[in-house]
Amino acid sequence: MNRTTLFILLTLVLAGCGSAGDRFKIEGRLLNMDQGEFYVYSPEGGINGIDTIRLQGGRMSYEVMCTAPTTLVMVFPNFSEQPIFAEPGKSVKIEGDASHLKEMKVKGTKTNELMNDFREQIATANPPQVLERAEQFIGDHPESVVSNYLLRRYFISGATPDYAKALQLCRTMRKAQPKNALLAHYEQQLKQLSRVTVGKRLPRFSTVDVDNKKIDNATLGKGLAVIMAYATWSYDAQRMLQDMRMLAKSSKGKLKIIGFCVDPNRNQCRAIAKRDSIPWPVICDGKMLESPTLHSLSLFDIPDNILVNNGVVIAKGLTNDELKQRIERML
């Protein structure tokens, strides 16, 4: 199942470091795109939530407080992403063409240029080769923050997450970065994610829905249940929502559903759920695919799903047709 990485409405981004010692500034130019806006976020919490970058006249400038090295991630219109590695007191320049986003360059620091080199290595590689080269890069550079990003991007949040491999690589990186709190978090998270497998009980989770009602394992009750991740901008996700609505209605209460909406605005998500009369709990924390609860349940794709029966995971990551057929056979 292909991962439609994140969300995002339009455009490209650029961030960077300014001349001040506690700022990071990005300046750049994007050819073949005059104006637009896009989101930028930090998986490490380097910025608060999701920020918006505006492109005007094909140029952009973005400055952010930066007191420690961190990673910023820009999401393109085609849902691919570009990491930018921020450092206090530094600045970078981005050179790109909206019609050839894979060729974008981020210049100004050695770390970003190291990422440029990796992107060149995988420019024409097939998916298995990309994973192979990402693993090799991490092995060659376990001390680099670029490796931290590659670990998450290709082995944790990729189209086909490999948690066993990710845990192995993470432990290697922790030896080179013993004080890195993010890697320590990843290691604990990966231990948990490895339990979200078919034939085992669903890990315990607890959160609140858009109406601030508590949602946890007990919400699923006994019998057949679906946990699904979706977004209002994804056609495949909307199709899955429609099919689940019909199945829930025909099941007469036998099928329980919990929905995780990865839209960036919680209030808008609540309004849409009310407008569409979604009959099950909807969870949206505004953190999109970086939601801790989503990660704890190993939900990284859009759409994605876990099929549970009496608290035991019986399937995960099914296509819409596969999920529909599996449920119909069991109801």
Rank of each mutant, 00 (worst) to 15 (best):
M1V: 08
N2W: 07
T5W: 06
F7H: 12
L9D: 15
L14F: 11
G21S: 09
K25A: 14
M33P: 07
G46V: 12
I47R: 04
I47C: 03
D51Y: 01
T52F: 09
R54P: 03
R54F: 00
M60W: 05
E63W: 06
F76D: 11
P77E: 08
N78Q: 13
Q82C: 07
K93M: 12
K93V: 15
D97E: 06
D97F: 09
T111L: 10
M115F: 11
N116M: 06
F118Y: 09
R119L: 14
A123E: 15
T124E: 15
A125M: 13
Q129N: 08
V130F: 15
L131H: 00
E132A: 11
Q136W: 10
P142N: 01
E143A: 03
S144D: 07
V145H: 01
V145N: 02
N148T: 14
L151G: 00
Y154C: 04
Y154H: 08
S157N: 14
A159T: 14
A159F: 10
P161M: 00
P161Q: 01
D162Y: 01
L167Y: 00
L169C: 03
L169K: 00
R174D: 00
A176E: 00
Q177G: 04
P178A: 00
N180D: 15
N180E: 01
Q188F: 05
Q188P: 01
Q189I: 10
Q189V: 07
Q192L: 15
K200Y: 05
L202K: 02
L202C: 01
L202G: 01
P203R: 05
R204G: 04
R204S: 04
F205K: 04
F205V: 14
S206T: 14
D209V: 01
V210F: 00
V210S: 03
N212R: 11
K213T: 13
D216S: 08
A218M: 11
G223F: 05
V226K: 03
Y230F: 13
A231V: 11
T232E: 10
A237L: 05
M240V: 09
M240I: 15
M240A: 06
L241R: 13
Q242K: 11
Q242E: 15
M244D: 09
A248H: 11
K249F: 13
K249T: 13
S251W: 11
K254Y: 12
I258Y: 04
G259I: 00
R266Q: 08
N267P: 11
A271W: 07
D276K: 14
P279M: 13
P279W: 08
G286A: 07
E290H: 09
F300D: 08
V308W: 04
N309E: 10
G311W: 02
G311D: 04
V312D: 02
I314Q: 03
L318N: 05
K324H: 10
M330I: 08
